[in-house]
């Protein structure tokens, strides 16, 4: 007892330092086996695409077709591919573990009793989800660039744009970075909405199912011509905008508007989460 008393003399404060909380959250996120497995699988995506492109050995239509002999397009194609389903699901998984999972394990209670204020908890959790999303995007981008250069190859490390111009390696990588940041913005929206669902349930699978269901519903809605007017409301309708990073000069309109839309979704998700966490029993 006395030993504890001596070592533990801290200043009289009512909240742990934010940096320590964030660091603990990040450590926790990356100690979670499923996070590491997911990141490992994401590293495979660009490799598989690269091998597929090399084996097929012909120009196909679409973004994948543009990869052939043009390695720096690979990370962008892989990110676009993963954004359709896998990246949102990975983000939703992180969000599911963040609140619903913690509640299911009974650890949310511990955090609230420490105490971590409920608003701060939402901030820490949102940060954790964003870190997972960023790590996933980074893995795809970096492995994509490497696999693009090594497996697919490109003339002098250049990137051929869809407009028929040629960019140097540095500018090509900058385009990849642009797409990565844009994808992260979209995932922030998914993560915030998933976090809101996560704050409403104790079952992590409900969060995954909601996000998957939402993606499918958005896909169906955007495929119905009569519901054209709905398109600008749907988060997913801007998810092909990464192609614009391959144009020269780069076209930022679609990425800009989809980012604004993503920020609105993120505000909705985070707002609901904050509101809900104020009254949630833990």
């Amino acid at each position: 007892m006395t030993a504890v008393a001596e070592t533990a003399v801290g200043p009289e404060r009512t909240a742990a330092p934010l940096g320590r909380l964030l660091a603990a959250e990040v450590r926790w996120v990356f100690r979670r086996p499923r996070t590491l497995i997911t990141l490992g699988l994401f590293a495979l995506i660009p490799v598989l695409v690269a091998v597929g492109v090399v084996v097929a050995d012909r120009n196909g239509p679409g973004l994948i077709g543009a990869v052939a002999g043009n390695g720096l397009v690979l990370p962008i194609a892989a990110l676009t591919l993963a954004l359709a389903l896998l990246l949102p699901l990975a983000t939703a998984m992180a969000a599911a573990d963040a609140l619903a999972g913690e509640a299911a394990h009974g650890t949310l209670r511990g955090l609230l009793l420490a105490p971590v204020s409920r608003v701060r908890l939402v901030g820490v959790k949102a940060f954790g989800v964003l870190v997972v999303a960023a790590a996933a995007v980074l893995v795809i981008a970096v492995v994509g660039v490497l696999a693009g250069m090594v497996v697919v190859g490109s003339a002098d490390g250049q990137m051929v744009t869809l407009s028929g111009t040629t960019l140097g390696f540095g500018e090509g990588v900058a385009r990849v970075g642009l797409v990565a940041v844009w994808v992260l913005g979209q995932l922030a929206a998914v993560g915030a909405v998933a976090l809101a669902v996560s704050s409403l349930t104790e079952h992590p699978l409900v969060v995954l199912a909601s996000v998957l269901g939402g993606l499918i519903a958005f896909g169906v809605l955007s495929a119905i011509p009569a519901l054209d007017w709905l398109q600008p409301w749907l988060l997913t309708s801007g998810w092909t905008a990464a192609t614009d990073a391959l144009r020269d000069p780069v076209a930022l309109d679609a990425m800009g508007s989809s980012t604004v839309r993503a920020l609105c979704y993120a505000a909705i998700g985070l707002g609901i989460t904050v509101w809900r966490m104020q009254r949630r029993d833990a």
Partner: peptide
């Protein structure tokens, strides 16, 4: 340690000992 990181009264240095 994760729980201790959230304890306001523990200094970061005191966590392992506590």
């Amino acid at each position: 340690r994760r729980a201790a990181a959230a304890e306001p009264l523990l200094t970061s240095g005191a966590i392992p000992g506590a």
